[in-house]
Computed example of a mutant assay.
Amino acid sequence: MKLLHEGTITNQVLHKKLPFSMKRLYLEDLPVIEQIQAKVIESLPEKDSLQALATEEFLFILNERGLMVGAFVEDELIGFRALLIPEIDEEHLGWDIGLPPEQLRKVIYQEISVVLPEYRGNRLQQKLAEVIMKELPNLEEEYRYVCCTVAPMNIPSLKDKFTQAMHIAALKEKYAGLQRYILVKDLENPLGHYSDHVTAKLDDLEKQQELLREGYVGIGFQLVQGFHEIQFAKPVL
């Protein structure tokens, strides 16, 4: 099995550094993938902050409709990250960010990303993102837009996406009425310059909606009196 990354990682319970590696996951890994997802969901105080994948969705990804990368300590899976090639339907995130129909096939989703609680605090989600995005060009088709959804108030996941230079392009109801940010990164023409910087409180979704309608995008966090606020700005095209 081809190793995609090797390094060391700290087990926060044992307070011990351990060697770890990353490799691509396949159909035979499905049982342990679902076990890890269940453990992570069980550890979350807010269960709906993570949009879990069903067995059928994992099968869809593992049957060459995307790719998954896992992190291992010895032979134990401790976290994974997935990319999904989506079906083009009415729920496609490309519609939410205003893409024309001919560009929808250029969209790939960053799907679920999970890390066991005892290995959090190692920037493992970010490392998994770096490795899986390096694997993206190995897929048969070429993709220009990387999209994902994140629940409002899910600060760790938003930080992860902002670190990857993704930006909030929309805030919509998804998944049967749940509010979700839709984030995107244009791999061919990433945003780099902004003007008119403003902030909005993390829980003020009405103001955020208004800013998005006015052409702002969400680009990061700012701490104001100890509380996170989302930074919005207008792209300079």
Rank of each mutant, 00 (worst) to 15 (best):
Q209R: 15
K201E: 14
Y26Q: 09
Y26F: 11
L158Q: 11
K106T: 03
A169V: 00
L116M: 10
L202G: 02
R105W: 00
R81S: 12
H197P: 04
A82C: 13
T8A: 07
G215R: 05
A165G: 09
P117V: 08
V107F: 05
K39V: 01
L27M: 14
E214R: 14
Y109Q: 10
L202M: 15
L183P: 02
E229M: 04
G70H: 00
Y194N: 07
K16F: 00
I33M: 13
N138M: 01
V198M: 01
D29L: 02
E56W: 06
S49Y: 14
E56F: 07
V236D: 13
L59P: 05
A200R: 04
V13S: 07
F72G: 09
I108L: 07
N11R: 02
N63L: 12
L124M: 12
C147A: 15
M133K: 12
F232I: 08
L202D: 11
G226V: 13
F162I: 04
Q209T: 09
K127M: 15
V198R: 07
V146S: 04
L158S: 14
A38P: 01
Y145S: 12
S113N: 15
V73S: 00
F58W: 15
V32L: 03
K39M: 09
A170S: 15
Q164N: 15
L99K: 11
Q125N: 10
K134N: 14
L53N: 15
M22V: 01
L237I: 12
Q208E: 11
E173R: 15
L83A: 07
P235N: 04
L237K: 10
G79Y: 03
E118W: 03
G192H: 11
H92W: 09
K201C: 01
Y175F: 15
L62W: 03
L223A: 13
S157C: 09
I219A: 02
W95F: 14
M153I: 06
Q179S: 14
A151Y: 05
I33Y: 03
D204S: 06
L83T: 06
K47A: 13
K23D: 02
F58R: 09
Y109G: 09
L4E: 10
V224K: 14
V146C: 10
S49L: 07
P86D: 09
L237E: 08
L93T: 04
L171V: 08
M166P: 03
R213K: 15
Q37A: 04
E206D: 12
E140A: 12
C148F: 02
E111V: 06
F80C: 11
H15T: 08
K201D: 13
K23F: 01
V32I: 15
G94P: 13
L77D: 01
G70T: 03
L223Q: 14
H197M: 06
C148G: 12
P156G: 05
G218K: 01
L44H: 08
A38C: 03
Q103L: 12
V114N: 00
E91F: 12
Q110H: 13
N11T: 05
L27W: 02
I219K: 02
E57F: 02
E140I: 02
V131C: 10
L187C: 05
K234M: 08
P100V: 11
G98R: 10
W95C: 01
K39P: 02
V114C: 06
L237V: 11
V150I: 15
E34M: 14
Q208T: 06
